[in-house]
Amino acid sequence: MVRIGYTMMTEQAGPRELVSHVVGAEETGFDFSVISDHSYPWLASQGHAPYAWSILGAAAQATSRIPLMTYVTCPTYRYHPAVVAQKAATVQILSQGRFRLGLGSGENLNEHIVGAGWPAAHVRLEMLEEAVGIIRRMFTGECVSHHGAHFDVENARLWDLPEESPPIGIAVSGPRSCELAGRSADLLIATEPEQEFLQHFDAHGGAGKPRIGQLPVCYDRDRDAAVARAHDQFRWALGGWKVNAELPGPAGFEQASQHTRPEDVAKAIACGDDVEAVVEAVRPYAEAGFTEVALVQIGGDQQEPFLEWAGAELLPALRDL
């Protein structure tokens, strides 16, 4: 059975609301939760970008059962990997072992703010691999010094260690990142139900490890309202990873998606209150071999009705899948 998760979408709600939403997701019966880690929204209409790690600390205290996870943090530009290790270890302690650290090579949208430039994709993957190695060493509790191609660490140590280190997930978008995930991660993260990703992951050490997907939906009893909201706030998602990783700000995503029509969004995202449409959208992940799928409800002010619908109708149908 595929486990179904809930996404705290930091681009579309404020910090207090996000904590309230994940409390509601736990009460509703979602199997796990994830949180995006952004410094900018994709589109100005989304309107938010609070600090994910503060929210995780609050969520760890406000909930008691639901697992937490970054989806995903980039440990190479805004954050130094040694700092990410400290943050992750702290959240793992606060959540009493419910945290997983999802990592990725990042998007220009979020990482440009520190003025370090934005190198080619292969360089970003090299940086990610080096960062993961540093984080794993930090999780052992040893005093770490490291002088590598991209990072320097001098006598760094985690003084507060959880009983179990957070599992590390790596986001994938092609063969090279899948190979890295297979070698270096405890689980795979993806936003597309590509079976080829899982095959590359398995071939390089990922066999038997969890693999997590993510899927946007837009619940509303009024389907036209759902389509309009999805178009207003989520049309950027149709651009694909190669575009989404490179654009530096919401204005770029506005321009890149200016010709995306509401009907285009409606074809790509399940909109309205049709449970079967969401089941069919999740099905490709299940058939590809994903073990978990995190749902994104589009619209920061529409989480409560979504959670009510999910508890009453959607989750029971997805359990059957």
Rank of each mutant, 00 (worst) to 15 (best):
T7D: 00
M9G: 02
W53T: 03
A60S: 13
T63V: 08
Y77K: 01
A88F: 04
R98P: 03
R98I: 01
F99S: 07
F99I: 10
I113W: 06
W118H: 08
P119A: 09
A120D: 14
H122N: 14
A131E: 13
I135A: 11
M138F: 11
T140S: 15
E142F: 09
S145N: 03
H146K: 11
H147M: 07
G148W: 10
D152H: 15
W159Y: 15
G169Q: 06
I170F: 05
E179T: 12
A185K: 02
E194R: 14
L198Y: 06
F201W: 02
G205V: 00
G213V: 04
Q214F: 02
C218V: 10
Y219G: 05
R221V: 10
R235P: 03
A237E: 01
L238D: 02
A245T: 13
E246H: 07
A256G: 03
H259M: 09
T260P: 01
P262E: 12
G272F: 09
E280M: 12
E280R: 15
V282R: 07
R283H: 05
R283Q: 13
P284W: 01
E292T: 11
A294I: 10
Q297W: 07
G300S: 10
Q303Y: 02
F306I: 09
E308K: 14
W309L: 07
E313T: 02
A317E: 05
